[in-house]
Amino acid sequence: MGALMKVAGIHHAYGGRAVLRGVDMELPRGSLVGIVGENGAGKSTLLKILAGELRPDRGVVRHEGRFGYCPQQVILNDSFTVRQHLELFRTAYSLPDLRRAEEIMEALNFREYAGERVGALSGGTRQKLNLTLALIHDPDVLLLDEPYQGFDWETYVRFWQLAVQLRTSAQSVLVVSHLAYDVDRLDVLWRLKEGVLCAGAGLAS
């Protein structure tokens, strides 16, 4: 099977500061890929470009299929409850029902908060919803920016179980993080350094 996403020659600068200087990569179908890098290395910038949030100065991104994007900054509306968020995104994605959303809430263990107003949730629970909104339409490609920030240990483990499940069903998952704990779960690990991706073997800290 071919790649679900191909990226070639991505360059990006903020003002005079070059952040990405020629990023090339492929995301094969059914793969779990990690990108690590220091704070400020440009990981979020790269993901925004892949998600179409930001236009690169140069370079090509080819996508196939639907994708879901979970931004590093939690983007929710404090006036709405968890269930209202799901309802809005169900409409956005044109889904017939919220069965998948229920499963994910179950997996991430925050179903009991369905009726709560998001403004009153804990940071970790907000992040669970932030992540869930990127998953409920069963995308072919998942772009996740620091998806487990603020998760407790059990949720962290459940997150990886979920990621492995997705890979099994031929979806591709790209996880960006400044931590490289879980290299053994990944098919490929890249390190973003000085604006380019290099093979990141043996990075476990």
């Binding site: 140069r58 090509v60 991104v61 996508h63 196939e64 639907r66 994708f67 956005a92 339409h137």
Partner: peptide, 16 residues
């Protein structure tokens, strides 16, 4: 095609 996150049908998009 430009609505990448939601393209309902698998399709290829190029941007440069």
């Amino acid at each position: 095609p430009c609505s990448l996150p939601t393209a309902r049908r698998p399709k290829s998009t190029t941007r440069s």
